[in-house]
């Protein structure tokens, strides 16, 4: 009789280990059930999904007057569109290649300046100065009738 009990305990299939497992599973289900809504609450679905970046993006030409720039989301990344002349537009990734700040267009200097560590870029994304290690990725941009179109270079 006592041998049987020892055998059962060794194989881990006695009543106690079954009950322990049941308690563990009940706790896991209860804690998981409480944490699931909290995690869903803190990670709202609509902010994790960006706009699915089609290969082309367009914006009304009225939104970017000549001599100004506008920040848009293209391929779910911050992208800056600069309109220098009536029919001349440039589109670049606005994420600085140094530490990821968003670059700004400076009309008077005709260059892009990163506000964090003063990296400078020209209209084609080339580094003019500062700590940026790589040029900004540039996209093809064109004015077509009343729209400005961007597509992959």
């Amino acid at each position: 009789m006592s041998d049987e009990i020892i055998k059962e305990e060794v194989s881990g299939k006695d009543r106690r280990s079954f009950l322990n497992l049941s308690i563990f599973i009940s706790f896991a289900v209860a804690i998981g059930g409480a944490l699931y809504p909290v995690i869903k609450y803190l990670l709202p679905a609509d902010s994790t999904k960006g706009t699915e970046g089609g290969e082309t993006f367009f914006i009304s030409a009225d939104e970017i007057p000549v001599g100004s720039a506008k920040l848009v989301r293209y391929k779910n990344r911050p992208t800056i569109i600069i309109r220098t002349k009536e029919n001349e537009v440039y589109a670049l990734s606005a994420v600085c290649t140094h530490l990821g700040c968003i670059v700004k267009w400076h009309e008077d200097a005709k260059e892009l300046l990163c506000p964090c560590h003063a990296a400078r870029f020209d209209l084609y994304g080339n580094v003019l100065g500062g700590p940026a290690p790589k040029p900004l990725p540039a996209y093809k941009a064109a004015v077509e009738e009343d729209r400005i179109l961007i597509r992959e270079a």
Binding site: P37, V38, K40, Y41, P44, A45, D46
Partner: peptide, 9 residues
């Protein structure tokens, strides 16, 4: 209305 489980919290 919009945040998941916001109604619950």
């Amino acid at each position: 209305n919009n945040v998941p489980f916001g109604w619950l919290i």
